[in-house]
Amino acid sequence: MPKAFLIDTTRCTACRGCQVACKEWKNLPPVPTRQTGTHQNPPDLNPFNFKLVRFSEHMDKNGVVSWYFFPDQCRHCLAAPCKMASSDPAAILQDEATGAVLFTDLTAKEDFETIRGACPYDIPRQDPASKRLVKCDMCIDRVRANMLPMCVKSCAMGAMNFGERDEMLKLAAARLAAVKKTSPKAQLLNSDDVAVIFLVADDPLKYHKNAMAEAIQPMTRKQFMAKAISPLRRIGGQTVG
């Protein structure tokens, strides 16, 4: 039975427990950062940050401020474009038991830009030393041991949820119905196509430019891959346009 995440951003307080817990479990080294006028740091995903809470603030015409938090990570697509784009089928695995999309050591031999370009969410990064491609692996070691992924474990707010896919879809539908009562624009992002389903209360673009799958991407070899990810494109195209 595949697993899924529900990331309910309406409960996220951006405490960044998930961001830090991920680094700690995986012993990822720090990256040097600077304060540049935002709380979002590091500025983007990088070879040593697989989980990043994105911050975006907005003020409407009535002066009402909203501050959105988006705990970004690999979506573990059901039909993973990165896997389709890889030249060696053994480089990127998809675990049948969980649905986890896993980058192996063999990804060092893949063309990084191709793999990254194939990802509708711009997730893959490359370790500068080993050249290996890296990203969230669903804490497959923990999940195999019947433990929650570390980001989910660290979340006290109920923003990060993990479990059997059908359970998560049920939870997602229930939460969407509840949130819609006060936030009519609330929606689930690409829920038919990914294992990491985000619930947002507003236009996804207000959270992050890659919150949803984008339709138009510059591609060469990737254009071929684009056909393979048509379900994502379709959804992205309809909503984000």
């Binding site: 405490c15 960044r16 427990g17 998930c18 961001q19 830090v20 817990a21 700690e24 474990k153 660290s154 979340c155 006290a156 707010m157």
Partner: peptide, 15 residues
């Protein structure tokens, strides 16, 4: 109180 959660600070206790 926490149900097993930790904020960023608590999550950094190994470091």
């Amino acid at each position: 109180v926490s149900g097993g959660g930790l904020c960023a600070k608590g999550a950094a206790l190994l470091s």
